[in-house]
């Protein structure tokens, strides 16, 4: 039955296709997409494949660098929002003068502190971390083989404040010290600030790498276009002799560069996205909390998908300017 329908439809589709292909608008679109031969023999050039490969490689590296930037951005945002209005009070094992507290004293001091702060108006919620929770927190560094009895553990109270301005933090600190002289207030700001600074440095590094990739691409395209101009100098001069403007000739090169870079960009981006997906999968299935889970927002993903278009735009503009600059030297 299907073959019968196919038989009936095939000639109609063919006719429709040929009618469409002959309409001026479609013809122009096809021509702009490179279906009409170039006036210059650019499509025959041997180094077209090299340019596609180069753009593919650059796009692949750009996807990885941008993925890194977006993932770090996302990670910093998650850390910041996860710790908003949260502080920790610690009963440290070691006192300021260097004495070690027994586990029993630590537990006792922690309980006393939690009880005293429970009804504090600045505190929204409060929770004493159990030994199991503390062990879970420190297990990535010391392993699971040690029992709690082997090491002294600090007392930890996780607190969510109503707000974290400096005044309320100072009040909390003084209330806390009234209840226990061993207590220390950990606001996370210091280490989080360091971490965010580190993340920002990595992010800037990724952006710098992306810029280097873009610069290398521009230099390679410029060199490629100059070589093409030298190879096809005779044909370029012929077009000039016929009255072709620099823009007419430049359009040929830019269309050529656009199509090649779009091809390369698509290939490189697909490979880059697959690699990123593998890295994300491995990070979420690593089984250790030391490696943070990598995530890329949907906006970030959409931007990554734009890389072939960005690569193609860079190639088009670069080729245009290179050709125009070189042609301006011809009378």
């Amino acid at each position: 039955m299907f073959s019968k329908i196919k038989k009936q439809l095939q000639p109609k589709i063919k006719t429709l296709g040929s009618v469409l292909a002959k309409t001026p608008l479609v013809m122009r679109m096809l021509e702009n997409l490179g279906f009409r031969d170039y006036d210059l023999p650019l499509a025959q050039s041997e180094d077209s494949r090299f340019l596609v490969l180069l753009i593919a490689l650059m796009s692949f590296l750009s996807v990885l660098a941008c993925s890194g930037t977006f993932a770090l951005n996302d990670m910093a945002a998650r850390w910041s929002s996860g710790l908003e209005n949260k502080v920790t009070i610690e009963i440290a094992v070691e006192t300021k003068d260097g004495h070690l507290l027994s586990n029993k004293t630590v537990r006792k001091e922690t309980k006393k502190l939690a009880k005293g702060l429970k009804n504090n108006p600045m505190i929204k919620s409060l929770a004493v971390l159990s030994n199991a929770e503390i062990q879970e927190l420190i297990s990535p560094w010391i392993g699971d083989s040690l029992t709690l009895n082997d090491i002294p553990l600090p007392g930890l109270i996780a607190i969510e404040l109503r707000n974290t301005n400096q005044k309320s933090l100072n009040t909390l600190k003084s209330d806390m010290l009234k209840l226990s002289k061993y207590a220390r207030l950990e606001t996370h700001h210091e280490w989080l600030g360091d971490l965010i600074n580190f993340t920002r440095t990595l992010k800037n590094l990724s952006l710098f790498i992306t810029l280097i990739i873009a610069s290398v691409t521009i230099i390679a395209i410029t060199a490629g276009i100059r070589t093409r101009l030298a190879i096809h100098q005779k044909e370029v001069c012929l077009l000039h002799a016929m009255g072709a403007t620099d823009h007419y000739i430049a359009r040929q090169f830019q269309r050529h560069a656009m199509i090649l870079s779009l091809k390369g960009g698509l290939v490189g981006t697909v490979f880059g996205l697959v690699t990123t997906a593998i890295i994300i999968f491995l990070s979420s299935h690593s089984g250790t909390t030391l490696i943070p889970t990598i995530k890329i927002s949907s906006a970030g993903l959409a931007l990554l998908c734009l890389i072939p278009i960005i690569a193609s735009t860079i190639a088009t503009i670069t080729s245009r300017f290179t050709v125009l600059r070189n042609l301006s030297k011809i009378p």
Binding site: D37, L40, P41, Q44, L238, H240, A241, G243
Partner: peptide
Amino acid sequence: RQRIGVVFQDFRLLKH
């Protein structure tokens, strides 16, 4: 230049 037609000695036809 568009008002000038040139026939070159070596024709200079575009082979492609």
